[in-house]
Amino acid sequence: MKLIVAIVRPDRVNDVLEALYRAQVRGLSLSRVQGHGGELERVETYRGTTVKVELTEKVRFEIGVSDHFVAPTVRAIMEAARTGEVGDGKIFVLPVDKVYRIRTGEEDTAAVTPVSR
């Protein structure tokens, strides 16, 4: 099992969600974060005060997947989140020791396999 953490542009989130849905990746969390990864800072001016805004709004996906889902998940995010400009984000694939599904107590691969109805 792996934990995939992806930081993407907010305006690509709908595309990423759609791509993940097509790749049959169902369980995920996302949160709004502030980040900086090398894109040019924006300049804002309020009367005499000028600032460089070095943190940009990003969205962080966290997706727990079984091993054979890693490649399709990464590909889906990569294709949907890419604009080609600096600031498209990163994807991290992290090892996971243990996963539990709280409702049933299922563990590991069973716990990250979506419930089929």
């Binding site: 305006d11 502030q34 804002e44 600032v51 460089k52 604009t83 400009e85």
Partner: peptide, 27 residues
């Protein structure tokens, strides 16, 4: 499209309606 995605407040006016100040470095 890029400017629309970043938001017209930021790209047309260089301002935000509710500033947090995080990461804003005084020039």
């Amino acid at each position: 499209d890029h400017e629309q995605a970043l938001g017209m407040d930021s790209t047309q006016h260089g301002e935000e309606p509710y500033t947090a100040g995080e990461g804003a470095v005084l020039v």
